[in-house]
Lab assay of single mutants.
Amino acid sequence: KITVTFNGEEKARRYYKKMQKHNLKVEIRVENNQWVVHVE
């Protein structure tokens, strides 16, 4: 499981979509004013 933190929504969403293309289970959320993407 990987957790990647971004300081911008745009970058986070781009990464999220990229990971989805690989058929990975991805989850995006905001934690402590940071955009966090969890990849299983």
Rank of each mutant, 00 (worst) to 15 (best):
E27Q: 08
I2G: 04
V37G: 00
K21M: 13
R29P: 00
V39N: 00
I2D: 03
I2R: 09
K1G: 14
E31V: 12
V37W: 00
F6Y: 02
E9Y: 14
K17S: 09
Y16W: 06
V36D: 01
K17R: 11
F6R: 00
T5H: 11
R14M: 11
Q20D: 03
E40I: 13
R14A: 15
R29V: 12
R29S: 11
N33C: 03
K1W: 15
E9I: 10
E9W: 12
I2V: 11
Q34A: 08
W35R: 00
E40C: 10
K1V: 13
N33Y: 06
V26Y: 01
E31Y: 07
Q20M: 12
K25S: 10
I28H: 00
E9R: 08
E9D: 02
Y16M: 14
Y15A: 02
M19R: 02
E27V: 10
A12K: 01
R14D: 15
I2T: 08
Q20S: 08
K18E: 14
V39I: 12
K11Y: 13
E10S: 10
K17Y: 11
Q20L: 15
V30M: 14
E27A: 07
K18G: 04
V37H: 00
V30Q: 14
E10V: 09
N32F: 06
E27K: 05
V26R: 00
Q34G: 05
I28L: 11
Q20W: 04
V4A: 06
Y16V: 11
Q34L: 14
N7Y: 10
N23K: 09
Y15T: 01
K1L: 11
E31W: 06
I2Y: 15
R29H: 12
K18N: 08
K25N: 10
I28F: 04
R29G: 08
K11T: 14
V30Y: 15
E27W: 09
K11P: 15
V37Y: 00
H38P: 00
F6W: 02
G8T: 15
E31D: 06
K25G: 04
R14C: 11
K11F: 12
F6A: 01
A12P: 02
R13K: 11
H38L: 14
L24N: 06
L24P: 04
R29Q: 09
E31I: 12
E40H: 13
G8I: 14
H38K: 07
K18V: 09
K21R: 10
M19K: 03
Y15R: 01
E40T: 12
E31M: 07
R29K: 11
E31H: 08
T5Y: 15
V26S: 03
N33H: 09
N23E: 05
R29Y: 14
T5I: 14
T3V: 11
N23L: 06
E40W: 15
T3K: 08
Q20F: 05
V39W: 06
Q20I: 13
K11V: 12
N23G: 15
E40D: 10
R14K: 12
H38D: 12
H38F: 11
V26L: 04
Y16R: 03
V36H: 05
E40F: 15
Q20A: 09
T3G: 03
N32T: 03
K21W: 08
G8A: 15
G8V: 15
K25Q: 09
Y15H: 03
W35V: 03
V30P: 06
N7Q: 12
H22L: 15
V26W: 02
M19V: 06
G8D: 15
T5P: 04
E9H: 05
G8L: 14
Y16Q: 06
Y15G: 02
F6E: 01
K21P: 02
H22A: 12
E40Y: 15
H38W: 09
F6P: 01
V37I: 05
V39Q: 02
K18I: 12
K17D: 14
R29C: 08
E31T: 06
F6S: 01
E31A: 05
T5V: 14
T5R: 14
V26P: 03
N7P: 08
V39P: 00
A12N: 02
E40N: 11
N33R: 04
L24V: 12
M19I: 05
H38M: 14
F6C: 04
T3C: 05
N33L: 06
T5D: 02
M19L: 09
K17T: 10
